[in-house]
Design a protein around this nucleic acid. Structure first.
Length: 399
RNA sequence: GCGUCGGUCGGAUAGCGGCUAUUCCAGGAGACUGUAAAUCUCCGGCCCUUUGGGCAUCACUGGUUCGAGUCCAGUCCGGCGCA
């Protein structure tokens, strides 16, 4: 993997660049499409490719459980298995320490807000004392997982995650980390961050010894919402010999990109930075302005399956009664396959009838919207009109 | 005509004397940020100023009872059976 910067954005941290992999280039900034279980839900790879996506990110925990690393190894890696021709990423399974641990059976999101601590009883829960009904428990050596499929017990260590990711075979893999809850205390964030640093070192050492296919490894910065922790984490992870970096963990809704800025000031400039699991339009602008090169996020495809569609004027819910007889445009002059061929009334019908084509058409639109938005942002940077574009877009999107 | 079973929110249901009438679907709205997600949450008789409270309601009319969607009688409507 090789990374190069073509242009830097004046008076901010942003940059335009290119990640070169054995399976093709990624023009950055770029939005990476999530295909957790070696499939972008509801879409064929051809659809994913023709809507403009450059790369796909799959998940180590999910693929390890099903179909299992041996099958993926025999298949020649997950990209070949799913027939995706372009560059690929795998997440390490560290996110599941949060989603199946602290967040299990809770409405908790990794994006917190300023009122969470006083309003939530969860704030006092020590993540190290996760209740027995949870599916993930963190220890110094790794994370104990229960299979979400059959309840069987599994243990991930940094080394194990590397081995599995080698077998899954993405171009870019991530170090094994612990994604924390925004409701965790400062003390816990610090403790988890220090542990993630130890795991980063172990991930890197094991990867260097066992990497046979020239896969790249990104280290992950943690530190929650705290400026001192974020900077400390970026310094320590940034000093390690990773090929690039992921910025993970929990954030405060109001200033995700402020935290990103703290981190990117510490990370080495010449390596790519991936913002894990963030993808709201406002966050894309904020992230890019603060030096993010790639994003991934489940939101476009998840909300698509649930009937929400992005438009230049904000999100709409296609299940709203007003769309039943709307034969106009879904999103103005959007050039995606869905918008050029179908009216809101048809999508409304598909969703009400629970026809699966609805999920497909909505996913195509939402992914196109986000992927293309990042491309437009990239172009605006090349044209020296990033800030104008940002202002006009956000004014329309957030009313 | 006789017998029999039944009529509970738009549809389907639970409820078989005891207080807030159940659940599913359809309907209305909301949420979703490294995917336990084609998922989840909320609303759905009327009135009051909120937390909350008040008043209704189970085809209709009467009755029994401290108390009735639940029991009894009649009426209306429907299914089935026999003429």
């Amino acid at each position: 993997m090789k990374f190069s910067i073509e242009k830097e954005l004046g008076n901010s941290r942003g940059r335009v660049g290119k990640i070169e992999t054995a399976h093709g280039d990624i023009q950055t900034p770029a939005f990476i499409v999530v295909g957790t279980k070696a499939t972008v839900k509801a879409l064929t790879p051809e659809q994913v490719s023709s809507l403009g996506a450059q790369a796909v990110l799959a998940n180590t925990y999910h693929l390890y459980l099903q179909p299992g690393e041996e099958i993926l190894k025999k298949a020649g890696g997950f990209p070949k298995f799913m027939n995706w021709q372009g560059p690929t990423f795998t997440d390490s399974g560290g996110f599941q320490a949060f989603s199946l641990g602290a967040a299990f059976n809770k409405s908790a999101s990794k994006i917190g807000n300023r009122h969470d601590e006083e309003n939530s009883a969860d704030a006092v829960v020590d993540p190290l004392e996760i209740p027995a009904d949870r599916f993930a428990k963190v220890t110094e050596d790794g994370v104990e997982f229960k299979s979400i499929i059959d309840g069987s017990a599994h243990f991930f260590t940094p080394e194990r995650s590397m081995d599995i990711q080698h077998n899954i075979g993405a171009d870019i893999m991530f170090a094994f980390d612990e994604c924390t809850s925004p409701l965790a205390s400062y003390e816990y964030q610090k403790e988890a961050m220090d542990r993630t640093h130890r795991w980063a070192k172990r991930s890197l050492e094991h990867h260097r010894k066992t990497n046979e296919k020239d896969q790249a490894l990104f280290g992950i910065v943690q530190g929650g919402r705290h400026e001192d922790l974020r900077k400390e984490s970026a310094k320590i992870i940034g000093a390690m010999d990773f090929d690039g970096f992921g910025i993970g963990g929990s954030f405060e809704k109001e200033d995700i990109y402020t935290a990103v800025g703290w981190v990117n000031d510490e990370l080495p400039k010449g390596k790519p930075r991936h913002l894990l699991g963030i993808g709201e339009p406002v966050d894309l602008f904020g992230g890019i302005e603060n030096g993010i090169d790639t994003f991934d996020c489940v939101t476009p495809t998840r909300i698509a399956r649930n009937g929400s569609l992005y438009t230049r004027n904000g999100r709409i819910n296609i299940l709203n009664a007003k769309f039943m007889e709307d034969f106009g445009k879904i999103d103005g002059d959007c050039a995606c396959y869905t918008c050029t061929n179908y009216a809101p009334a048809y999508l409304s019908h598909l969703f009400r009838a629970k026809e699966m084509l609805g999920a497909t058409l909505a996913s195509i639109h939402n992914l196109y919207f986000i992927v293309n938005l990042v491309k437009e942002i990239r172009q605006s940077m090349l044209d020296d009109r990033f800030f104008e574009f940002k202002e006009s877009f956000l004014k329309g999107y957030y009313k």
